[in-house]
Design a protein around this nucleic acid. Structure first.
Lengths: 194, 194
DNA sequence: TACTGCTTTTGAACACGTTCAAAGGCAGCG
DNA sequence: CGCTGCCTTTGAACGTGTTCAAAAGCAGTA
């Protein structure tokens, strides 16, 4: 905070006049990033056809946008797991940021040519959002050159996801799907919004 | 640390003579917990029959053991996501603790009556360990009375896991299984030991 | 200009993890 | 007993996030 205040040519106390805490300052960074990415994503979604390439488009925007800040994000990821920590992507305080993301995933899903089971559909944006968080977390600590491994993982997991979504509609799997949805409902009621 | 030192009736500096850092002190707590639980788990595994009840036995020991420290664990969970943080359950520093857990899961799996595909088998202990971490993380911030929700989630997810393991052997699902294993191999090479 | 009430700025001070040089025990040896 | 070498203990001091009372600007009004 002393460094930041000095960089901004103000006294330490002044930083705390404009930002309630170091956390709040970081949150402002999140918000700005989220809004800027939201525009980029909307633009790319308009051009992309098919669910897989749409999801890939969203992921690509995030990775490209955060690429210069990968190490910075790594420092912030310390707080990622605790849903009570305001900086956690699961917290109430970041709910409005999450909403933007969920919206994009919902949009990407509407145009899907894969028939999505009606009972599962409401859970899909949240599920894919969670999948995306996992991928980003992996990316943050991916030390392979140029983060190739994350890209491999992205492609492989995306195509597996497509297979899973296609399979989810099979009549034979109905009982399993019902059980899964029951499980998701149990989780949803808790702090975790999965 | 001042509080801990005072509680132990020594000066602040003495605490740092016996523990390199606050983190190291927490690590000692982890280790002690891990060893004590390991004995409890081994005892119960000897009595339990069937994969599902064995996995349930492992989970039960953990929940029962940590029950008095649930809030304390919640404070520690702050570090859970960053694999570079020594306190993270994914870190190199906690590898020896993880090993004990993995061993128990491996033992539980050997006695399974479900035929486990040979190619998937090596990944199963790690996968179930990860599942268990997720469940514990859920439990830590489960604010439902007496953590009923976690227990529901445990039962529902355990029986779904059994279904998934049974399905994993179906010849029809071989291509999907191969792809999944390929994906797991991609992840395994990274810091994450999934 | 002088006064009043508000916003903004400031830096000293605090909390807590950590470091470290100094001091205090405490064997074993002469 | 004193001396030497080691282990143990100590508390002052540092770094960094945070708080807060005081001071400094800055309208608007008379």
């Amino acid at each position: 905070m002393r460094e930041i205040a000095a960089e901004a040519d103000v006294a330490l106390g002044s930083a705390y006049y404009y930002f309630a805490s170091k956390e709040a300052l970081v949150m402002a960074f999140y918000e700005q990033a989220s809004e800027e990415m939201s525009e980029l994503i909307a633009a790319r979604l308009a051009n992309a056809k098919g669910l897989q390439s749409r999801l890939k488009a969203i992921l690509d925007v995030k990775f490209e946008y955060f690429a210069p800040n990968r190490l910075f994000l790594s420092a912030l990821a310390r707080h990622a797991a605790d849903p009570h920590n305001p900086l956690s992507p699961f917290s109430d305080e970041t709910a409005h940021i999450r909403r933007l993301d969920l919206h994009h995933f919902a949009v990407a899903l509407t145009a899907s040519r894969i028939p999505l089971p009606k009972d599962l559909a409401p859970y899909l944006p949240n599920l894919i959002w969670l999948y995306q968080m996992g991928l980003i977390l992996f990316w943050i600590s991916d030390r392979s050159p140029d983060q190739i491994r994350t890209r491999q993982l992205r492609d492989k997991s995306l195509s597996l996801l497509m297979i899973a979504l296609r399979a989810a509609g099979f009549p034979l799997l109905r009982p399993v799907r019902k059980r899964t949805i029951d499980l998701l409902a149990t989780m949803k009621a808790e702090t975790y919004d999965v």
